[in-house]
Amino acid sequence: MGRYILRRLLNLIPVLLGITLLVFLFLHLIPGDPAVTLLGDRATPEQVENLREKLGLNEPLPLQYLAFLRDLLTFDLGRSIFTGVPIIEEIKIRWPATFELSVAAMLIALGVGVPAGVIAAVRKNSLVDNATMTGSLIGVSMPVYWLGLLLIYLFAVNLRWLPPSGRLGIDAGFSFQPITGFYVLDAILKGDFRLLKDVLAHLILPAITLSTISLAILARITRSAMLEVLSQDYIRTARAKGVLEWRVIFKHALKNAMLPVITIVGLEFGTLLGGAILTETIFAWPGIGEWIYGGILQRDYPVVQGGIIFVATAFVLINLLVDISYALLDPRIQYK
């Protein structure tokens, strides 16, 4: 087991190198001189040259890449061109927001998607099944931006049940100093229920918006995995023995149907971290995604670079954890 993990960790190195190379090339091969873009419509050639020098853009591309890698090894992702704040500092402040949102979205996706998939499988071809599958098709294809605005208009502008965006109300913000950066956790640690209510109220709409695609995919995967398991001999045997139907479904079938679901959860969770760009932007959620979006608009290359590397690394690590967890879930799986 330990050896397997070590081997997987070593395998990460080429993957991560590939990520850095891709990110680096993307930003350097798009047309247009970054220095000109940065300075905008009023730059003199002299200013452009100075900035190119300052950004190291005059070096040959491979040398620029090596310098980039060297800095990366010391967690030096550079500074934002616009604000001058070190990228690593900004990531430290922002990742808890993204992580909290992704966890909330995943909980919703699991809490709704898996039961929906189970019901659909058990009542195969029934009205419930068709409705669930149609619903999940809509969920997969719904543009996040549109759904987010729809929810804001319905629940915040018209009904006034929930705040439209942000992570914290204006009033709650005056007295609140974060401890961990995970606001839900902070509110609990402080034992402040008014704050907790405010934080959760702000979390609901973006979490729902972010969860839809994963929820739909989970429902579909759960359904097909359950269908496969339910058709196996041991289920028939269990039923023949007179085991209660709910026990058959939840104890015998669901547990064995979970393996593909876990795989998807891992993949989806990684996607959530990165896919939060649109959701965070619509909901003014101060996380990594909103930061990358701002970086793209301003052509703040170090920000985009740092943000993408963070998200990609998180994605890879989460999938490693998922792979390892197989062994824990299913004792039949052995790693050599």
Partner: peptide, 16 residues
């Protein structure tokens, strides 16, 4: 800070 103009208008309408 609300980057998206549609989100800004929604916030204004919601009174935040």
């Amino acid at each position: 800070f609300v980057d998206d103009p549609a989100a800004r208008l929604a916030q204004l309408r919601a009174g935040t």
